[in-house]
Design a protein around this nucleic acid. Sequence first.
DNA 1: TCTTGCCATGCAACCGGTTGCATGGCAAAT
DNA 2: ATTTGCCATGCAACCGGTTGCATGGCAAGA
Lengths: 361, 361
Amino acid sequence: MRTIKMNPSPTISDVAKAAGVSTATVSRAFSRPEMLREETVIQVRFHATRLGYLPNLAARALSTGRQGNIAIVVPDIANPFFPPLLKAAQTAADLAGYSVFLGDSDEDPEREQRLVNKLVMQVEGFILASSRMPNKQILELSERQSVVLINRDTPGLPRVLIDTVAGINAAVAHLAELGHRSLVYISGPAASWSDQQRRSAVSSAAVLHKMKLESVHARHPSFDAGREITSAVIGMDVTAAITFDDFVAHGLLAGLAEQGVVVPRDFSVIGCDDVLGASTYPALTSVSARCDEAGRMAADLLMSNLQMDKRDDTRCLLETWLVVRDTTAPAPDSSLSRAKKKAHPKSAIGTPGVMRMRSTV
Amino acid sequence: MRTIKMNPSPTISDVAKAAGVSTATVSRAFSRPEMLREETVIQVRFHATRLGYLPNLAARALSTGRQGNIAIVVPDIANPFFPPLLKAAQTAADLAGYSVFLGDSDEDPEREQRLVNKLVMQVEGFILASSRMPNKQILELSERQSVVLINRDTPGLPRVLIDTVAGINAAVAHLAELGHRSLVYISGPAASWSDQQRRSAVSSAAVLHKMKLESVHARHPSFDAGREITSAVIGMDVTAAITFDDFVAHGLLAGLAEQGVVVPRDFSVIGCDDVLGASTYPALTSVSARCDEAGRMAADLLMSNLQMDKRDDTRCLLETWLVVRDTTAPAPDSSLSRAKKKAHPKSAIGTPGVMRMRSTV
DNA sequence: TCTTGCCATGCAACCGGTTGCATGGCAAAT
DNA sequence: ATTTGCCATGCAACCGGTTGCATGGCAAGA
């Protein structure tokens, strides 16, 4: 353990001195080399690399107003829905020469606002994924900065939406086809656009198929919350559940198993987001989407807005589909009572928006 | 779609004008309020918030040399090992007032170096998680900046290591106790310190328990790579596998299932990192650790180094343990041949470093 | 009432780049 | 040989803060 002084990085004027030119020439050797004699550029670059010179982006930002940074804010990095999205966005940004700040709001609107404030002067734009901030604050922000939203449908702003309506419709149709006459929707965060969309999609699909619809709220999109609402679900006289996300579904599966309810024989479960994939047991039927695609598109949208110096309000929908695995089966004779297990009807294969997957384990 | 001009943010001099004071006073009202009359501070702050003033951190960094940013670089955000770590680190940094840059090197040392170069002037320090860069470059970097490593054991630098030795020992002991006489280690990225550590820990534990040890390399820490090496494993005349991580284990489980090998009756599998938890089927026995803890510690270590303006070389070990679930069972009579299934010996419970989990689904 | 001293505030240089404009030198044109 | 014109480079102001030092005003002490 020792006190140290980091050797200060060489600056543009160190390089200038070494190369026997002015700082302006050094600057141009990097940012506008076509203005200089080729020989000069080579000289300057030579001394720069020899000294280990790296341009100070903060200083550059100060004079150009272009930071070369963007920020991505998500409600919960640890939710597997986001990492692929983050990765894709970061890759796209990197390709365009941008660096990315990461913010985790922990599902808290105030913390999200504080994060945004801390970052706003250091970035050229924001990607807000599943933002929990009120519309007013988002619009305010968008007057200073380019903003692209993911899974939040605020008119006037560019946004990438994972359109679960198709997937949910397929899910409800799938249940109806299996003979279910009732289901429960287990809802997620109230501030979540996705939850609102899913809730209303389930609702109208239930009407269409003349199914009885109940609803329960999971206090948090997590395994534990899913397990907690199990008793409520069991007491509800329904034969199937569609949950806000895969975690709630996973928790519910665990809760049902504990109570001796056999899935899918006694009860069918469908998740959303398809992030657990085939790794649950039984392998979870889920509404799936390319969430990495959402990240990439949002980043590209932001980047192109920055380069064009314009603002559009593209509303970009990403399609979803149902992946049928092993948690859905024909309805039992009565809700949550024993029923003989039947094979999955083959009719599900080939239905539009439905994909039958072989369980991987 | 319209071209817009973002209204420029108010600067310190706008506030100064509005409040009828100098820019120095505005600056001090924020950074050193105790130097000013209380009344002045209130006045300045009032006008600042009225105008929506937010300090320009890049400008501040330029004159103070303190950016208020750190960077975290990981080889693969989408690998579930990292998100909890990232989240914990980001939370700790945020608490200390720092913002965080995120870099994904995609397992590529050159890309990692490029990322680092782009960020080096904008941050006060780096957290490099499972860095794939050569030691030389890491040490070079550490002369300019504070660096904290995760899962990389470079002497002279502060580092947080998830010490899988204890967990691996427990894993091998567990297999030995179940009557296995042979096993294969399925290795991961060659540049990974964790892989080296795990490989050598398996090796010495195998010697200790007089077990035959084979080894296969998975080209990538992923499900697919795990599935790919299945045939190699089957051809190997061993009765158990320990894999570099849970993904490889998951892939292997899938591959074995496809080939009709029943786990754990015919073959036992143990993963590492415990990121899939109970969600595989059968629920995976795995070497577990608090990886969020690693992120938090690394962030705290970095932060304290920055504030003390010193550099230590703390070597911080995080313990691991074996979580026994449903992929390990007594050895079959001969390798990969049928054997009657026995119950798990209760003796595993209570062995130090071993934890018996009820499968959650 | 005049001096002393402190405290609140302002001035101006500086951090490390960028860039509009000025300048000087050399080649081509006259 | 002189003029013209362009191209490569330098000068210096500026981006938005911070901070050492100077200054002015007011209160306390003489």
